[in-house]
Design a protein around this nucleic acid. Structure first.
Length: 260
DNA sequence: ATGACCACGTATCGTGGA
C-alpha cells in the first residue's frame, strides 16, 4: 500500500497539479495539508471520480487537512485532542481497512510557530505536547498507526541546505526539535531516515529568492511510524520533481510503500 | 552583493506562510 503526504498550499490553486500527480503516482491513501477551504467548498468530485473516499477537516482561508483513500475509511475523527479552545483545523485521523489488517492514519499540519519566541511558538510547542499525548494513547491501544504531514520541523542540520540561516527559526529551534525527538523516542520511526541517509533531501523550497533553482530546501514533511507499522516499511521517497512542475505547491509529496 | 513569492479574501492590500 502506497500512502502519501502532500501540503498542497490551497486546493483551489492546486486543482490541476494535484490530480495530475495523483494520476501519475497512484497512491492508495493521501493526507493533505493546507487545503485552505471549508468542507463544503472542497472539490470532492475531483477525487471521487478517481476512486477515492474523501474526508475533510476544513477551515476558511487557512489550514485545513484531508484524507483521500481508495480503501474504506472508518472511525474518522477531526481535531487534535487536548485543547477545546483550539479552533484551527490541523488534524484528522481515520482507520484504513484492507482485506488483511487495519491501519490508523493520522494527518497533521503542525503549527509553523514563527515568530519565535512568542505566542505562536508557544502554541506550536503545546501542540507538539498534545501530539505526543495522542501518540502515547495510540501506542497503548496497540493499533498500528502512522502520523504523516507537514511537521514544520527541520529535524537535523543535514535536513536543510543552509542550516545556519534557520538557526533562530521556529522550524529549527532546539525547543521544537526536542519535541520532535521526544516523539521519536516513544519508539516511532522517521520513515525517510530509515531508508535514506545523508544531506540533500528536501520536501520544501520557498517560492522566494529562487530557492528551487538553487536547491535551497528543507525537509519538514515527515512520516512517523509506530513499531508495528515500521515492520511493514518497504520504501519511503520524496517526489521532488513535482516542485518543478506547472503551478507547484512549495511542498512536494512524500510517500511510503508499506507491506500491508 | 542584492533582490527576489504565493494564496486567500471581497480585495486592488493585509495577512499568513516557512
Amino acid at each position: 500500500m502506497k500512502i502519501a503526504t502532500f501540503n498542497i498550499n490551497g486546493i483551489k490553486a492546486r486543482a490541476e497539479a494535484l490530480p495530475a500527480w495523483l494520476d501519475a503516482a497512484k497512491p492508495d491513501v493521501v493526507v493533505l495539508q493546507e487545503i485552505k477551504s471549508v468542507d463544503d467548498a472542497f472539490p470532492r468530485d475531483l477525487f471521487e471520480d478517481r476512486g477515492y473516499n474523501v474526508e475533510t477537516h476544513g477551515q476558511k482561508s487557512f489550514n485545513g487537512v484531508a484524507i483521500l483513500s481508495k480503501h474504506p475509511l472508518e472511525d474518522v475523527s477531526r481535531g487534535l485532542p487536548g485543547d477545546d479552545d483550539d479552533d484551527q483545523s490541523r488534524y484528522i485521523e481515520a482507520t484504513v481497512v484492507d482485506d488483511h489488517a487495519a491501519l490508523r492514519v493520522c494527518g497533521l499540519y503542525l503549527p509553523n510557530g514563527n515568530p519565535a519566541p512568542g505566542p505562536k511558538f508557544d502554541y506550536k510547542l503545546a501542540w507538539m505536547d498534545r501530539l505526543r499525548a495522542r501518540a502515547e494513547t495510540l501506542l497503548a491501544e496497540e493499533m498500528p498507526f502512522l502520523m504523516a504531514g507537514d511537521y514544520n520541523i527541520i529535524p537535523q542540520a543535514e535536513d536543510a541546505a543552509k542550516p545556519d540561516s534557520w538557526r533562530d527559526d521556529a522550524l529549527f529551534r532546539p525547543a521544537a526539535r526536542e519535541k520532535f525527538r521526544r516523539l521519536l523516542n516513544l519508539g516511532l520511526t522517521d520513515a525517510f531516515r530509515a531508508r535514506t541517509q545523508g544531506p540533500g533531501h528536501y520536501s520544501f523550497w520557498d517560492y522566494q529568492a529562487g530557492a528551487w533553482n538553487r536547491n535551497n530546501g528543507i525537509r519538514i514533511d515527515h512520516f512517523l511510524l509506530s513499531p508495528a507499522c515500521a515492520d511493514w516499511l518497504r520504501d519511503c521517497q520524496i517526489d521532488r520533481d513535482v516542485r518543478g512542475g506547472d503551478k507547484p505547491s512549495d511542498h512536494v509529496p512524500v510517500w511510503v510503500d508499506l507491506d500491508f
